[in-house]
Amino acid sequence: MPLSEEQVDQARRFVASVREQVALAVIGQGRVIDEALVALIAAGHVLIEGLPGLGKTLLVRALARTFDGGFGRIQFTPDLMPADVVGHAIYDPATGQFSTRKGPVFTNLLLADEINRAPAKTQAALLEVMQEAQVTIDGTSHALPAPFMVLATQNPIEQEGTYPLPEAQLDRFLLKLRIGYPSHADEVAMIGAVTRGRAGDQLAVDQVRALVKPQAVQTLQQMAAQVVTDVAVVDYAVRIVRQTRDTPGLAAGAGSRGGLALVRAARAWALAAGRGHVTPDDIKAVALPALRHRVRVAPEQEIEGRDADSLLSDLLGQVPAPRQ
């Protein structure tokens, strides 16, 4: 059933207010905030990549603050074990029973900081949780609280001692966000906000108000699922994904999950923009974050200094937009 205009408008205002609150703490990263909210509305997970000190962790903390639900954080390190992530059964000598100690994944928003610092076994445990939305400890399945969203961060430099996520696992993230440097004016505003009357260098998130209940987010996610997607728009998304497989500069194109991600994210983008239907512009708006981690750039293009974003932008200019 299509959404009414009131519902759509309500959703838009709701998203706008959350965005406003997050932007109080994360200054100059509007696009990244929008994309993180889109992932939340589309019930997807995000991988955030950026240089140190650009506010990756702050963004997640601020987002969690607006959200009146559970928030957990795991700092990934080389010695982190799967049980440290999902939990384990422990013997209680007093009762003579095994009791289950749930890991930090039992929360609504989970920050997996520097996910590429843990070995593949631990990464795989988290990625499995992301896929299944449940944890099996000692033979018993435990469902994760809904909504559940993982925001993983990684640093594109400092590859020493890291375990890069394989393509198959990157595919589990709905969007990959890139945090760049803020503009001059934003940086001035941010430094002013941090240093005014404060002793440390921590960006404060205490001015961010909690607006969102977990149930509200679930409602929003259900509304996004009802956003009308015309077959021409789906066709456009599929043509873009298929084109990534035939583009000479890309060594590997996106799979079908790429097309799914594109449409899911576009629906959330349309809802956040106050529309009850998806247009080709919505597809185009989310194409880079939805596809950049699902394609592999050919080595000769990397030597030329091209990255996935520039190749995908060229590709978007070539795929004919739907004509209705």
Binding site: K284, G317, Q318
Partner: peptide, 9 residues
Amino acid sequence: VRAGDTEGD
């Protein structure tokens, strides 16, 4: 208008 241009473009 180019091939890849949408309404927004």
